[in-house]
Simulated scan of single mutants.
Amino acid sequence: MAAILRLNYMSLSEFILIGFSTFPHLQLMFFLLFLLMYLFMPLGNLLIMATIWRETSLHTSMYLFLCAVSISEVLYTFAIIPRMLADLLSTDRSIALTACASQMFFSFTFGFTHSFLFTVMYYDRYVAICHPLRYNVLMSLCGCACLVAWSWVGGSVVGLVVTSAIFKLIFCGSNENHYFGCHVPPLLKLACGNVSTVAMDVGLVCISALLGCCLLILLSYAFIVAAILRIPSAEGRHKAFSTCASHLTVVVLHYGFASVISLKPKGTQSLEGDTLMGTTYTVLTPFLSPIIFSLRNKELKNAMKKTFLSKLYPSSI
């Protein structure tokens, strides 16, 4: 029996991504909507990075981390959305096993790097507000670079562990993946053998990483709020809160959608519902992030006006 399953595994060379084909009359609308959102994502993030690069007043650790977040976000969307857009216009939705494994590795790597960088950003705000006199020592350029590097290493380790665990499984029977990408739950449904153990191990790794980041952020925010409330002037409290507002909004969106997708009880949603819910984390959150960072961060917004709008409309700035 094991030999037969192994033979089936070796003969399986591709998956079929069903994805949005269950919405045949809406595929063109989805394509146009997701295309516009996808084009805005790199443009918005590149605008943020260019502003930080040009404005020397923004050459601080907080904006270094924001640049790193923007880069990871662009790479995360690039790992998934182009393929999703192509499938919306194509009748051939097959994807090779190697391509599927690559997509899973890069999406998990960039996605978890994103989560670790959010945690580092909140640690930076914690140090700035709760330990301002030691800020330059604790958040030196070398220290910040190390935190960014470790975030990327952590994301790569999670991506490698998850991808290795999934693609060591034996796939048999149907090769129809009822999702628009190579995500863990739909692939587990196509696998044979001791799937429950792998599912438990992968879930433990992902949930531990997400909850660990989330708890560290909440702990940092609790200390930040306590320190802000001790600031005597209302203006000082408002300025301190405003620096955290954009971070907190994006973090809530990021972890909120990730938790709904990762922790959703099995069997409570249709396949079509899973597909639509997946777009909230894959498309909607990356689309909203640069908007929130630009509009809710007064310092960054003023720098954008000074750097770019003043050149287009010199009389209005």
Rank of each mutant, 00 (worst) to 15 (best):
I217W: 02
L204V: 13
M49P: 10
M104Q: 15
L32K: 00
L64P: 05
M49T: 10
L58A: 08
L300M: 11
F112G: 07
F108R: 02
T113G: 06
L210H: 08
L218G: 12
K298D: 14
H238G: 10
V195D: 12
W152H: 06
A258F: 15
I95C: 02
R125G: 10
G278S: 01
L97E: 08
G111V: 01
F287K: 01
I166C: 02
A227I: 05
H59D: 12
L7F: 11
S310P: 03
S316P: 00
D201A: 14
V120E: 13
F287E: 00
T119C: 13
F223N: 12
R134A: 15
L35Q: 01
T119P: 03
A245V: 07
F34P: 05
I170Q: 13
T119K: 13
F118G: 04
S294C: 14
L248E: 05
F308L: 02
F110P: 05
K168Q: 12
R296P: 00
Q269C: 15
K264A: 10
W152A: 09
L219I: 10
G155V: 09
A86E: 00
A240V: 03
L204K: 13
A258V: 06
L271H: 12
V202W: 02
K305L: 12
L248R: 10
F30R: 00
S246I: 06
S208R: 11
E299S: 07
F257R: 04
L300A: 10
S294Y: 07
F23M: 02
L218R: 09
I207M: 11
L271P: 07
G159A: 07
S107E: 02
P42K: 07
M10S: 10
E299V: 07
G111E: 00
A199I: 02
H254M: 11
L46R: 06
Y123M: 08
V157L: 12
A3F: 09
C130L: 09
T279D: 00
Y179N: 06
V225R: 10
N45E: 04
I81H: 04
S72H: 04
S316Y: 06
L187A: 00
N136D: 15
Y179D: 06
I231T: 14
L276K: 06
H178T: 10
S61I: 08
F293C: 08
P232W: 05
N297R: 07
G236K: 03
L97G: 01
C130Q: 05
V74G: 08
E55V: 14
L138I: 14
H114T: 08
